[in-house]
Nucleic acid binder design. Structure first.
Length: 201
DNA sequence: TAATGGATGTTCT
DNA sequence: GAACATCCATTAT
């Protein structure tokens, strides 16, 4: 059987381009042999020294080291005292870059996501970076995982996104001038980000 | 429906 | 000691 896992070359490109192309791909998490998955509907791009909003802006540290490594790996970090965020590394080895996965449209394993998140509406199960990692049971034990080789978490070809919208990134004070947030226009699983921010600018 | 602020802990200055 | 790639309940309109 042919695997439809996305190859490493896909991630070895200009980060905003990878972030845009990831919308429509399927994110798969496997726990005890069961698939939990969904279509990626919202992402953000982060680069290196010229991107003041990026963790890699001030160079390599023990936390962000994965961003400087080979493309196609998971960069998982803990934030705001409560939440994990899942990123996919991009660009050639030595060039920092990562795409933050902000929301998915659940497909398989919805019952497991509900168990992880509590009884809430399906369109909010994995909407927002902290909610996504909680729904899929992702923690720092997956930091540095190779998404091309792993059987615990990986990306597959999904479906064609209808239309890609862009906006400034959510929750960052620096780098407001770049529109490096990408989402499927009109999709109800996309997180609102900030209250009252226009979703179809 | 929109705005505000608290919980909570790691990382870096 | 300050900042932080968040989330959600509470408050005001």
């Amino acid at each position: 059987m042919k695997r439809s896992v996305i190859p490493r070359e896909f991630f070895c490109r200009y980060t905003p381009e990878v972030a845009s192309d990831l919308v429509g791909c399927r994110l798969v998490r496997v726990i005890r042999g069961r698939r939990i998955s969904g279509i990626v509907v919202e992402t953000e791009a982060y680069r290196g020294p010229k991107d003041p909003a990026s963790h890699a802006y001030r160079g390599k540290t023990s936390r962000n080291g994965v961003m400087f490594g080979p493309p196609g790996h998971a960069y998982v970090y803990f934030t705001m005292g409560m939440h994990f965020c899942l990123n996919v590394t991009t660009e050639p080895t030595g060039t920092p870059g990562a795409v933050l996965l902000r929301a998915i449209e659940p497909e398989e394993g919805i019952a497991v996501m509900v168990k992880n998140r509590g009884p809430i509406a399906v369109d909010r199960l994995a909407s927002g970076p902290g909610n996504l990692t909680k729904a899929l049971g992702i923690g720092k034990e997956l930091d540095g995982e190779d998404l091309v080789m792993s059987d615990r978490i990986f990306l597959e070809h999904g479906r064609m996104a209808r239309e890609i919208g862009t906006s400034p990134r959510v929750g960052v004070s620096a780098g407001r001038s770049t529109r490096w947030r990408f989402f499927e226009r009109g999709n109800r699983f996309v997180s609102r980000g900030r209250p009252s921010s226009p979703q179809n600018p």
